[in-house]
Amino acid sequence: MGRDYHILVLEDEPATCAMLATLMESEGFRVSTAQRAAQAHDLVAHHRFDLILLDLNLPDEDGLYIAREMRAKSDVGIIMLTSRKEDIDRVIGLEMGADDYVTKPFFPRELVARVKNLLRRLNMPRAGRRADGPPGSEVRRFDGWEMDLAKRSLIDPQGLEINLTRAEFDLLTALVNSAGRVLSRDQLLDAIGSQFWTPVDRTIDVLVSRLRRKMEVDPKSPAMILTSHGFGYKFAPSVAVG
């Protein structure tokens, strides 16, 4: 990893902003900084960022709103930084499209590890994920849907492409590749590369809820992604390869 990656640090506290910039630059990343949401919007309009370190407590705009707006426009990596420690704040952050959530004060080396972990997932679509099997072996079809693991695309039965975040796509991939089998939350956390989340968090539940809203006819009565209460989730449709 190095200067191919461009990170935006959006943090209103000057000392913390400078510390984060220095920390990321010491790892070889290109870094831009902003202390106000307005500055960040201007930078995003003129530069392509791979990852945003986003403070939730900004003076001119709510960080959760910024996360939702950024996620609606792109699949940029988002790591939220906040002093809020309630589980509900983490869940809301995930609902808004964040990839990870770090509470202050944090250990610098842990933050670096989280950044690198997310950027490795970012690099998967960039590299194209060359298929090792025969032509079409990376394509999965189910109930009129088509999922291309190499292109990281999901097409609904009407032929429309469904926009998924990296975590959503990786979670769906794990479920589809194990269709008919229940996967535990720990197995699904491993599949999306979220080894840093706490064992009691609701990461998987939130991601499943997001997938259901995008894929199910009735998200409140799902027919595709089924819950195994107390254990995990199962992908119900039959899946064809190629």
Rank of each mutant, 00 (worst) to 15 (best):
F106P: 06
Q195H: 11
L207M: 15
L154C: 00
A72E: 14
A127E: 15
R166K: 06
L188R: 01
L10F: 03
T103P: 12
V31G: 10
P134H: 03
P219H: 01
P237I: 04
S221C: 05
K234D: 02
K220W: 00
R121Q: 11
Y65A: 12
R130K: 13
K214C: 06
P105T: 04
F196Y: 08
A167H: 08
I66L: 15
E95T: 14
G28A: 13
S26Y: 05
I52N: 07
Q35S: 11
E11L: 00
L164R: 05
K151F: 04
R48S: 11
S194F: 01
R3F: 02
E146R: 15
L119M: 12
A45H: 03
D156N: 15
L171E: 00
L111P: 02
N123I: 00
M19I: 10
T82L: 08
N117G: 14
D186W: 07
T82E: 02
F49P: 04
V31W: 08
V115T: 09
Q187C: 02
R212I: 09
D205R: 05
A40Y: 04
S74V: 03
K151Y: 01
H229F: 11
V239I: 06
I225A: 02
K214L: 13
V44C: 04
G93Q: 02
N123A: 14
A127V: 05
I162F: 03
K234S: 09
L23P: 10
R126Q: 14
W197Y: 11
L149G: 02
D12V: 02
Q39L: 01
D99P: 04
L171W: 01
T173L: 10
R202Y: 04
T203R: 14
H47G: 01
D143W: 04
A191L: 08
M96I: 01
A150Q: 15
A34Y: 05
L51I: 08
L94N: 07
G2E: 13
M224D: 04
L53E: 04
T103R: 10
L43M: 12
K104F: 01
S83K: 10
L149A: 12
D205E: 14
L43K: 12
I79N: 03
M1K: 01
D170E: 14
I192F: 05
G63V: 03
R185V: 15
F106N: 09
V208F: 08
L54R: 09
I204V: 15
S74T: 14
P199V: 09
K73D: 14
I66M: 15
A67I: 09
L119A: 03
D62L: 11
P14W: 07
V182E: 08
A37E: 07
A127W: 01
T198G: 11
R210W: 05
R141N: 08
W145S: 00
P237R: 06
M215I: 10
L175E: 04
M70T: 05
R30C: 09
N117S: 15
R152L: 06
S32V: 00
A131I: 14
F106K: 07
L226V: 12
D87F: 06
K116W: 04
G193N: 08
D55K: 01
V139C: 07
C17S: 14
E11S: 08
L149H: 03
V91T: 11
S83Q: 09
G230V: 10
L183A: 07
I162R: 11
L171A: 00
G28D: 14
V206E: 10
V206M: 14
R48L: 09
D201I: 02
D87H: 06
T198P: 03
V241D: 14
G128A: 12
A72R: 15
R3E: 13
T103E: 13
